[in-house]
Structures are given as C-alpha cells and as structure tokens.
Nucleic acid binder design. Structure first.
Lengths: 307, 307
DNA sequence: GCAATCTATAGATTTTATCTATACATAATA
DNA sequence: TATTATGTATAGATAAAATCTATAGATTGC
C-alpha cells in the first residue's frame, strides 16, 4: 500500500475513469491501472467493476474510499502543520533557568511569549546551573539560562546579562557605615556563600585566590533568596548578585560595600547542547530573550541563520 | 512521504534509537536513517535531536507521532476490514427483482440474509425484467432476478425456478366448470395479458403464434397482482404465473383451466453483467438464492470457483 | 459495422528504497 | 585520558518499485 496509489484510487473513484484520473494526477493511464491493480492485489479484493464507459466501485471499493479519504486528510493535515511549524495544542517544551533568571530576567518575556504561542505549554526547570547543564546533555531541556562561564565541549553558551555581585551587608553591620572595606577585613567577617558547585561561588573563590586570602565561610547555600534573608538579619555578609538584592537595597534592608580593588560579577547566559535543532516555537523564545538583553548576533552566528 | 518511513519513524520515536528501530523493523540502520532523513526533508523540519546515546523527538516530531499513529491505525484497520471482507456499517448494495421474485421467492432468503449480514443495507429495485437488465448494464445493480430467457451478449443468466403459467379464470366463469378448453375457445374470450415488453407476454405470444391463432386482448398490464384481481372479478381471463395466483386458487377465487395440448410456463433466473466481480456480501446472497432453488453448479461454473 | 474511447499488458526506463562497507561522533570504561 | 563499545551519517552498489511508451483487446455510440 502506497500513498500515491491511494491518491490514484480516490481520483478514479471520483471520476469513474482510469484515464481521467490519470490526467488529473498527471501520470499516464497504465500507471493508474497498475496502481489500482497493486491495491487490489494486496487487499485481495476488487475495488472497481470495469467494462463500461465508466468504472464503478465495488462494496469493498466504497469501504476503501471511506478510509482513504481519512488517511489522505490526515496526511495533508500533518504536512500542513509541520510545514507551517504549527504547534499541536497541548504540545510544549522544557527549558531550564537559574533562580535569578526566572525571577528577574524572564517574567516579561514569558508573558509576551504566552501571547505569541498561547497553545504551547512551557515547563521551566529551576535549578543551579550544573543541573541544568545535565538536562541539556541528556536532551531533557531544549536550552537553559544559566550562570557563566560554563565550559563543556558539548555545550554552547551566549552571554545575555552581566550582573555585578557586590558585597552586601545588613543595614546595621559596621561595614554599612564605612561604605567600603578591604578583602582582609572581609575575610575576618562571617561569610555566607553559594555552595561550592555553583558558578557564582567559583567566581568568588577565584577572586580570593588571586588576592591570596581565604575566606572564613560560615554558611554555604544554594538559594540566593535565603542568603539575602540571612544577610538582612545579620547572620553574616555575602557576595550576592545585584538582581537578587536590588529590592532589599532599595528598601534599605541591605547595603552595598565596595571592596577595594576587586570587582565581583557573574554573567548570565543562554546555554544549549551543541548542534541541537530548535523548533520554531522554541527559537522564538530564545530569540526573544536575546532581543530583550543582548547576544542575538552571537547566537545567530553560532546557530547559523539558515537554521 | 511513505508509509514504511512512517513506520520506521514511529519505531524510532518509541525506542529512542535508529539502530534499535532498524532491528525491530528488520531492516538495516542506514535504511532507517535515510527514511527519517527523507521525512525530515519533505516536511522541512527536524524530527529528532541526535547526538547522544538516544535520539529525542523535537516538538515537530511529537506532532508527527500524533498523526503517524492515527494514519497507521487507519491503514491497519482498512487492510483488516478488506481482507476479512467486512462490510462497513451503512454500506450496502442494490439488486433488481421482478415482482414475483421479491414477493414469493426471496422473502425467506432475505430474512436469513439480514441475520448473516445485519449491517448491510439492501436496496431492491422492483421492475419488469428489461428495466432491471438496463440497470445491470449500467452497473447500477449488482445482479437481478428476472424472467428468462433473456439473451444479451453482456448478460449471463442462470435459471432458478420454472413456474407454470396456466390459464386462470374467475370462479364463476363458464370455463371453471369444464376444467379444460381449447385455444380456439380461449381466443374468443376477453384476455388480460402482460404488456408486450414483458418476457411472460412474449412466451404467451409465441405459443399462440405456434398454434396459428391470435388472441383477443382486452387489457395489457405490467402488474400481475392487478391482473389477478381483474380475473377474479370476471373482467377477463389470463395466463398468470402459478406463484402469483396460488393463494387465489387455494381460496377458490380463481380456477385453473387446462388448455389442450399447450403448456405455458416461464422461468425465473438470476442475471448479472458478464465479468462482474461480486463482493463477499453480495455473493453470499446470490448463493443463498441458488441454494434455496437451483442452479448453484451452473453459477459456479460461470463465475469460476476461484472467484 | 466503424470510429472513438476505454482498460490491460509487455517491455524498457527511471526513480526509489535498501544493503554493504565505512567514516565519524559520543558515551561509558579502564 | 586513552580505549572500547555503541550510535548515526554517508558513499557506492544493488535490488525493487514505479512509471513510461507502445500496443492489444473491449466496449460504447454513431
């Protein structure tokens, strides 16, 4: 059974003539003849009664017409859907994002996205970068918004946002008054830092190492929000992304303290498995992120405009 | 797009592996690869993300899975239906029959048939033989039960029933008492005969012609039932099929009168367009007719046992 | 009966599908 | 970090199929 033969069959059924169907299908009459013959052979039934000016469907032929039309409709429908890159209702995809991204960078973009693709269900996985990268490598996520840098032979990244990661202290901490401090002073204080498997922590550690000092860590956590709270109530001080603490700064619950000669910052970027193909609905979201921030050109170069 | 490729595709989607799908489909892995590649090319989208131990469907791939499964189901269903010669609900066929056949010969057979094929809708066309043959030639009926003989190069016939066609008179007609009459006596009486385009009439005319007499026809009709009534009330006398008048004879409303030396009879048979293919549901009915009466062997010889 | 029109068939040709062999990439393992 | 096992992609050869041309055989309509 062959989709072309089905098409010939329907045309014959409709026109009542092999010759006319052949003209309609832009093939020769023997082609239609053998197509029908092949169908009849595999089905083991006669589909038409010949021998007149017109051929007439048998009962089995009428049965096949019923099915063939349905099959044909489905084939046309799916080709149409796919070629227009329509998304089936209920269809969706998964992506990853770190806490800061999903909380501060993406909300507006996701809101717009829902308007553009209302039928696409989005599933955002929120976790530390390294877990998100695992998902990428296992093909469980389409892409992820993670902390950079992240070096892996099978992962590509494009930066979209550089976020400073200043030293923040509670409003009543001694540093709050003096507005700046040296690294030597800082390591004397109880520090609340990200867990060692986080990229932000790695950045902090690198700066300390460059300066030849080692911090007195009192707590390690994975949740920046929790860390913010702890700093606010004076449990310790911390280097936290500006995105995370902006509100507390505005409210006066936290204060930024310059650390002489050392700038802490981390980048946030989009990461994906190298060579991955992006469906139109997914590419739309990624490109909306780049448009809102930066990196569209780099992305286009890496993925290839042609797509 | 090709049904085999769709099958490969579904297998890959299910197993997450081209190689495994190939093993499942009993083809080589490159066959699956090129099948998927061909689908992707004609659709213009990527269906799988490769590059891992397992391949993973893209959104478009998931869409195609949806459709491919439906298409596959329909294909299997129709193949099953046709190979088992099942009849789709509401499907049916048309056949022709003369009045006497549909009234006296077929009722029990049709009743049995409804039990064997309850979902098949039968449409019986009741008309004089020559019109029924027109339907056969135009492929509007599958077969017809008509009066014989009927000679046409494109129509085959098999006799199933020989019906005598005696002279019948009303209970109070003078002939009723004497039990027999000569043709010379008969032509003096007002005769009610079938219309000239009927086969039964032709038979009667031939007998008269052989005897060298010509009847005094007072009425020509197409309805044997109406003729029976007219004879009963004494409008005239008639040669009518025994099937038609049996009840009236039993009731005493009509009497049979032997006509010296002349036997009138007509045959009823099944006719079909030469070379016609019969669906199983139709053949079943025809063969039920032959089994109930006669002619099964002749039919099988003419149609071919192989079918 | 004849011309026109239809379907079937045979044989040649082209296209498509499949296979074998192998390259290349990735993931797991030592 | 190299190695092995397992996957997919690709090139070229082969097999299968679909299609075409040409023509025969049949039927309808004039």
């Amino acid at each position: 059974m062959n989709l072309y033969h089905l098409r010939y069959f329907l045309s014959v059924a409709q026109t009542g003539s092999f010759s006319q169907a052949a003209r309609e299908m832009h093939v020769t009459q023997p082609t239609v003849s053998s197509g029908i013959a092949e169908l009849e052979k595999t089905m083991g039934v006669r589909l038409f009664n010949r021998g007149g000016k017109r051929v007439v469907l048998t009962m089995e032929g009428r049965t096949l017409v019923n099915y063939a039309m349905q099959i044909q409709d489905l084939v046309e429908e799916v080709e149409d859907h796919l070629q227009r890159r329509d998304v089936l209702p209920g269809e969706g995809f998964q992506f990853g994002a770190i806490d800061a991204a999903v909380t501060y960078l993406l909300p507006d973009i996701l809101k717009d996205y829902r308007r553009a693709y209302p039928s696409v269900s989005l599933s955002a996985q929120v976790a530390p970068s390294r877990y998100l990268v695992d998902d990428l490598l296992m093909n469980r996520s389409e892409f992820a918004v993670i902390s950079l840098p992240y070096d892996h032979p099978r992962v590509e990244t494009v930066s979209i946002y550089r976020d400073s990661m200043p030293l923040v202290v509670g409003a009543f901490h001694p540093f709050a008054a003096q507005k700046n401090a040296t690294l030597q002073e800082v390591v004397q204080e109880p520090l609340i830092l990200f867990h060692t498997d986080s990229i932000s922590r790695k950045i902090v550690d690198e700066r300390f190492a460059e300066a030849g000092v080692s911090p007195g860590v009192v707590m390690e956590m994975r949740s920046p929000e929790a860390m913010r709270k702890l700093v606010e109530v004076g449990v310790g001080i911390s280097f936290l992304p500006l995105l995370t603490v902006q509100e507390s700064l505005n409210a006066g619950a936290l204060k930024v303290v310059d650390v002489a000669g050392v700038a802490f910052s981390r980048e946030i970027g989009v990461a994906w498995r190298r060579g991955r193909y992006f469906s139109a609905a997914i590419r739309y979201l990624i490109e909306a992120i780049f448009e809102a921030y930066q990196g569209l050109e780099v992305w286009e170069k890496k993925v290839g405009i042609a797509k």
